[in-house]
Design a binder for these strands. Structure first.
Length: 215
DNA sequence: AATTGTTTCAACCGCTCATCA
DNA sequence: TTGATGAGCGGTTGAAACAAT
């Protein structure tokens, strides 16, 4: 069915709110409550649609809004709830007093999401991405073997790099393939990740890791 | 100092759901 | 039961701020 955008009607104003508009909306709601959002803008003397007024009020003007950076405790909650609720931002926001769904959604998309991706963690399952793990496994094992063979072998006249086969899983220690230096600093600011995925290199074999971490 | 690239976040859009006549 | 309407949600956009070169 669909719905025409409210701003198409009566050439209502769009874009950033001015301090005057904020004041008019706040004053009206404090005096009358918000009741019907559709009729509110007209009653409050605003050239905005009800939807825009509701969004401005709930995401910015509401007196109980908590502004500023998310604490590490809040990050913990967001990450853990996201693993349960997925992108149900309003449901997640219900557990974080003073935070809006929009704010949490933005925070997830701009910060946490990137960190988890860099860690090689699947954003849907909150588990390590095994496709990346396998790829890294093959590449690193191959490189390791090439190095060992090369070091143990007398120099050939042609200086060719010897070829080698990929070892079995049991022979190779596991580290998280996507850990880099930037990640180390990111994760230090992400105390919340209790996730299922961080592995301390390089003390475990892959089968141990899979049985311990992935299940 | 100027330019370019990246990040952040407020705001919009389109859709679904709930309610009511 | 059905269609109209309002509220709310999640995805996306774009401008401003900031960082890097």
């Amino acid at each position: 069915m669909g719905r025409t955008p409210c701003s198409d009607k009566n050439s209502l104003k769009k874009g950033p709110w001015t301090p005057e508009e904020d004041q008019m909306l706040t004053h009206y709601i404090k005096k009358h409550g918000y009741g019907n959002w559709r009729t509110l803008p007209k009653n409050a003397g605003l050239q905005r649609c009800g939807k825009s007024c509701r969004l401005r009020w709930t995401n910015y003007l509401r007196p109980d809004i908590k502004r500023g950076r998310f604490s590490s405790e809040e990050e913990d909650i967001i990450i853990q709830l996201h693993s349960i609720l997925d992108n149900k931002w309003s449901a997640i926001a219900a557990h974080l007093p003073g935070r809006t769904d929009n704010e949490i959604k933005n925070y997830w998309n701009t910060r946490i999401r990137k960190i988890l991706l860099r860690m090689g963690i699947d954003l849907v399952t909150h588990r390590p991405r095994l496709d990346l793990l396998d790829l890294w496994w093959i590449l690193s094992s191959s490189l390791y073997n090439q190095t060992q063979v090369f070091l143990n072998q007398p120099l050939t006249q042609s200086n060719e790099i010897p070829t080698c086969s990929v070892p079995s899983c049991n022979e190779t220690q596991l580290v998280n393939p996507n850990v880099d230096h930037k990640f180390q600093s990111d994760i230090s600011g992400l105390s919340g990740y209790q996730g299922n995925a961080i592995v301390t290199p390089p003390t475990r074999t892959r089968p141990e890791y899979e049985s311990e971490v992935l299940h």
